[in-house]
Design a protein around this nucleic acid. Structure first.
Lengths: 185, 185
DNA sequence: ATCCTTGATTGATATATGTCAATGGTCAAA
DNA sequence: TTTGACCATTGACATATATCAATCAAGGAT
């Protein structure tokens, strides 16, 4: 959909499908979030230099509509309720980033995969047996590890009866134990 | 100054000294930023649930003044320029967080210490031979590693002539090489 | 001066994690 | 059916990094 470093003149509203937004780092990508309908993609560059500071690409067939950022900015200036709501949203986003950073920097792989699984099940697909439409590489890019490592952790979870994987259908069997793993790092 | 999880009813303006803001994670801390005069401490909780989502404590003797958040919120609603400026600041903050996350998750220790040294020299102390007023543990908490590892990397940099350390006076001798290390991870 | 606390440093060791290479499965195009 | 491309999986191995324990240096208080 767009690449890090390119000019950004619109903000994007995803109306169907699923999109990943990710930073292209040193040889690997870090997925910041998955965006599902109806949610917005609005990067920090909009109020700075009108560049994208992350890339976005569809992981499922996705439709979206674009809104010129100048319209958005006018709305912010003219409507205090809108501005306040926007600040609330970005605050929540920041909070989410905090949790993510702590997970990525202070937990080991098992805890990070656990967090990613909960993110997918609770926040993205919103069901428990859920259909993984993202690749193992994407899962690894969410959890900040190599895809081989991610696969190995999944295998361990399967062996311990925490998880079943049938094709791309994932089911978390033992939520409590997985929460435990998330907590203890 | 305040602890993660406590209620936050004011925003803080640091008028002298140096303060670290950090997240208390699983057994270790992650320093998000150092705050020097004159800058503000304004967490994401202010517009959500009025709680602090990170802790702050002084690393040098620090004075600060407090402003009730309700005053701040009124200003946001009544003054579009102020609101826009605030959004710009938080955008810049978000951008900085992005760089930080990439550094922490995709670079190895040498690159992360290099980044931390540049942060201290260029953004915080703003001189090149600079007086490290933070501890090695703090340096480690900025770079997301154990203090022993941080010390070892510093030692290597000294041996390679990139850095001199005299007491708490640090001088980056070979900026170009250190940039190189930051780039190559 | 001596003690005591705190932070810095060093070494030895364990382990978490990445890398590389090989294999297998699946699906679509020819 | 066969081929090829792509993704998932597995194993063997190298190495980055944390942990633990010990030592050392510098002040402050008694």
């Amino acid at each position: 959909m767009f690449k890090q470093g390119t000019p950004s003149s619109h903000f994007i509203c995803v109306t169907s499908g699923l999109t990943k937004i990710y930073i292209e780092g040193y040889g690997k990508n870090l997925i910041l979030a998955l965006v599902k309908p109806v949610d917005y993609i609005f990067g920090p560059g909009v109020y700075l230099d009108n560049k994208h500071y992350y890339s976005a690409s569809a992981v499922e067939d996705t439709t979206a509509c674009l809104v010129d950022t100048s319209i958005f900015k006018k709305l912010i200036r003219s409507n205090p309720d809108f501005a306040e709501d926007f600040i609330k949203r970005t605050s929540a986003q920041t909070l989410f980033n905090f949790e993510q950073v702590i997970s990525l920097t202070q937990k080991q792989m098992h805890g990070r995969i656990a967090d990613a699984l909960f993110y997918l099940s609770e926040k993205i697909y919103c069901t428990n047996p859920f259909n993984m439409t993202i690749s193992r590489q994407d899962l690894a890019d969410i959890s900040g590890m190599s895809k081989e490592s991610a696969i190995r952790i999944l295998k361990e979870f399967k062996e311990e009866g925490i998880l079943t994987v049938d094709g791309n259908i994932f089911e978390i069997l033992n939520i409590k134990q997985l929460k435990q793993i998330s907590e203890t790092g």
